[in-house]
Simulated assay, not measured.
Amino acid sequence: MEWVPIVFVTFKVLVFGTCMFLAIKWHYERGKKEKGKQKEERGAVLRAGGKVAAVFALSILGLLLLTIGLGRMLGLDLPFP
């Protein structure tokens, strides 16, 4: 059996394992540090998300009305089900 694949696979496992451990540790420590800031930002994010959802719903309604109006102007029969 060749030794090159064994060495490379072992090296790859060690490097990926070390990187995953450090990434998890970094995210955990960062989360602990920013825990207080998240509560303040959560309300702002929810308000912004609500505004985006409202604009999206109104644009869908406007597009629906525009489509129906254009269809009637062109003489298409578009009955409501």
Rank of each mutant, 00 (worst) to 15 (best):
L76K: 05
Y28D: 01
T67W: 07
T10V: 05
L66C: 00
A57M: 09
E40N: 07
E41I: 00
L78E: 15
T67D: 10
K12S: 01
K39V: 07
R72H: 14
I68Y: 07
E34W: 02
F56W: 10
E40A: 08
A57G: 04
V45I: 09
V52W: 09
G43W: 02
E29G: 08
P79T: 06
G75A: 06
E2S: 14
F16T: 08
V4W: 15
V52R: 08
W3H: 13
C19L: 15
H27R: 07
G17M: 07
L58W: 15
T67S: 07
L70D: 09
K32N: 03
K35F: 11
G31V: 06
W26G: 05
R30E: 05
G50K: 12
P5M: 15
Q38G: 00
D77L: 14
V4Q: 02
D77E: 14
K33G: 05
L63C: 03
R30I: 00
K51Y: 12
H27G: 01
F8T: 08
F8S: 08
H27S: 04
M20V: 14
L76Y: 02
A48H: 00
L46T: 05
L66P: 00
L14S: 04
L58A: 03
V7E: 15
G43D: 03
A48T: 02
F16P: 10
G71D: 13
F11M: 06
K25R: 09
L64M: 10
L58C: 14
K25D: 06
D77A: 14
L74A: 13
G69K: 01
T10Y: 15
C19E: 13
P81T: 09
P79W: 00
F80V: 11
D77M: 13
K51D: 09
G69L: 03
I24D: 10
I60Y: 01
I60C: 07
L63S: 08
F21H: 15
R47E: 12
T10N: 15
A54W: 12
C19Y: 13
V13G: 07
A44N: 03
L66S: 06
L58V: 04
